[in-house]
Design a protein around this nucleic acid. Sequence first.
DNA 1: CTTATTGCAAAACGTTTGCAGGTTT
DNA 2: AAACCTGCAAACGTTTTGCAATAAG
Lengths: 126, 126
Amino acid sequence: MRYSRQRELVLKKVAALDDHPTAEEIYEIASRESPGLSLGTVYRNLNVLADAKRIRRVSVPGHADRFDHTLREHSHMYCTCCGSVTDVELDDAALLQIIEAGAGKIEDYSLTLFGVCGKCRGKSSN
Amino acid sequence: MRYSRQRELVLKKVAALDDHPTAEEIYEIASRESPGLSLGTVYRNLNVLADAKRIRRVSVPGHADRFDHTLREHSHMYCTCCGSVTDVELDDAALLQIIEAGAGKIEDYSLTLFGVCGKCRGKSSN
DNA sequence: CTTATTGCAAAACGTTTGCAGGTTT
DNA sequence: AAACCTGCAAACGTTTTGCAATAAG
């Protein structure tokens, strides 16, 4: 992977945003700082960075992919109220049981929880 | 939800196929039996049937949605070798831990395992 | 008679890709 | 100079939608 100004910027924004931004959101913010940046380049760099495990891809069923600068293994919760995505940690026992459920040849897994986040619970009478 | 011949057919095919077909696959097979059926109608019916909980939607990150006639709560494994999707059961303890990880307000969850299915393991030296 | 549902085609959506030119090593 | 990366625009695969016509209750 060769250096490029655009790649550096994309990586920096994923880290700085820290809230699981989509490609579109990263593009929006990065192109303020680098006019002429193209959305295709953002997608390409997100893919390269994810393949190189410098960032992680977060898939939320029914929505655009998001990207996460946290490399540690973890899962996510999608708030059905505000659409935010927050980190969720499974303990080792749960993880082990997930691996075992797949009969021993699991390469990866994707777990997304759907619920109402703390912030939204705080507001209305949810 | 009103009765319609097309809806009945879509539901029947999801049940009969029994292997997590995609909308396209359902369309392919159903339209043999009902020429003139449109892909849009298949999508619309899959949506109303899923909303009414007569079938379940199975999201596999990076692939088209699939549909499942099994209503019982369960997860899925996507075979990275042949692309097949098979059912996977989590035991109650794992489920409980998943619910707890989300801090108590989980409405739903989506878990997809990625690995090599039994059939593919049987073949080559996998 | 009213309203849901259909087929069709067009469009929306998120994402990838071919290309010609520019950058990095 | 070779290999990689960019911007642009077109295309992709999946899914939704507007419409006028048809079917269900």
